[in-house]
Lab assay of single mutants.
Amino acid sequence: IRKQWHEDITQDLRNHLVHKLVQAIFPTPDPAALKDRRMENLVAYARKVEGDMYESANNRAEYYHLLAEKIYKIQKELEEKRRT
């Protein structure tokens, strides 16, 4: 379902936000690492998460909020795993 606010969101912005999700899960300073085949699954997962939020959000603010919440949860989980 195409929503009115979707018209304001460019593909570049969506790609940028997918990249932010990927960085939250696997922070790497090396952009070449993103071309690694093992990263493809991670990028696919991040695209799916972003797509789900894009579809479920009712406006741009909610879209950003859902993504920020997801990134926060991912970082929290990773922190907890590092501690144990």
Rank of each mutant, 00 (worst) to 15 (best):
R2M: 09
R2P: 09
Q4P: 13
H6P: 07
E7R: 07
E7Y: 05
D8V: 02
D8M: 05
D8W: 05
D8C: 04
I9E: 01
I9G: 02
I9M: 10
T10G: 06
T10N: 05
D12Q: 06
D12A: 08
D12H: 02
D12T: 05
L13P: 00
L13M: 14
R14C: 00
H16M: 08
H16N: 07
H16I: 07
L17A: 15
V18W: 08
V18K: 00
H19A: 11
H19G: 09
H19R: 10
H19N: 09
H19F: 08
K20C: 04
K20P: 00
K20A: 03
K20R: 09
V22N: 01
V22L: 08
Q23A: 11
Q23V: 02
A24W: 02
A24C: 00
I25Y: 15
F26G: 13
P27G: 11
T28V: 10
P29L: 11
P29G: 12
D30F: 14
D30N: 14
P31H: 06
A32T: 12
A33W: 05
A33F: 08
L34C: 12
K35Q: 10
K35R: 12
K35H: 08
K35F: 08
K35S: 13
R37S: 13
R37E: 12
R37I: 07
R38H: 07
R38S: 12
R38A: 10
R38W: 05
R38Y: 10
M39W: 11
M39Q: 07
M39L: 13
E40A: 06
E40P: 07
N41Q: 10
N41K: 12
N41L: 06
V43D: 03
Y45N: 01
Y45Q: 04
A46H: 00
A46R: 02
R47Q: 07
R47S: 08
K48E: 11
V49S: 02
V49Y: 00
E50H: 00
G51S: 12
D52A: 05
M53L: 09
Y54R: 04
E55D: 12
E55G: 01
E55I: 07
E55A: 07
N59W: 00
R60S: 12
R60L: 10
R60T: 10
R60M: 09
A61D: 14
A61F: 03
Y63H: 03
Y63S: 02
H65A: 11
L66P: 01
L66D: 01
L67Q: 04
L67V: 13
L67F: 11
L67A: 09
A68C: 09
E69C: 05
K70P: 01
I71T: 13
I71H: 02
I71K: 08
Y72A: 15
Q75L: 01
Q75D: 04
K76R: 09
K76Y: 11
E80Y: 10
E80T: 13
K81R: 11
K81I: 05
R82D: 12
R82E: 14
R82A: 12
R83H: 15
